[in-house]
Simulated scan of single mutants.
Amino acid sequence: MSDLQMRVSDEDRERGARKLQEAFMEGRLTQLELEDRLELALTARTYGDLLGLIADLPADAPAVDEVVELASKNGHIQRSGDWAVPRRLRVASKYGSVELDLSEAVIPHPVVEIDLDLKYGSAKIVLPDGAAADIDRFRADWGSTVTTNVPGRAQPGALYVVVSGETKYGSLTIRYPRKRWFTH
Rank of each mutant, 00 (worst) to 15 (best):
V106E: 12
Y160T: 04
H184L: 01
I174Q: 05
P128D: 01
R180T: 03
M25Q: 10
D36I: 04
T145E: 09
R137Q: 10
L127E: 00
E104H: 13
Q31K: 11
K124L: 14
Y47E: 06
L29M: 04
Q5A: 14
V106M: 13
L40C: 00
D36Y: 10
G170A: 12
R137S: 12
I125R: 06
T46R: 05
E39W: 10
L50F: 07
D36F: 05
T145P: 15
K124H: 12
G52S: 06
Y95P: 06
S93V: 11
P108Y: 09
D117K: 12
L51F: 09
A61F: 04
Q31E: 11
I107R: 02
Y169T: 04
S103E: 01
V150S: 00
L70M: 13
L4E: 13
G52D: 07
L159F: 02
T46C: 03
Q78S: 15
L100G: 04
A23I: 04
H109L: 11
V85I: 04
V162W: 00
V67T: 13
L53E: 11
K168V: 09
G16Q: 02
A84R: 15
L102F: 01
M1A: 07
K73H: 14
S72W: 10
R37D: 08
V64L: 05
H76E: 09
R87P: 14
A71C: 12
E35L: 07
L51C: 10
A123R: 14
A154K: 12
I107L: 03
G143F: 09
M6F: 12
S72Y: 11
V111R: 14
Y169G: 07
R153K: 14
L70R: 04
L42W: 00
L50G: 00
L118S: 08
V67E: 10
H76T: 09
E39Y: 09
G165R: 02
L89K: 03
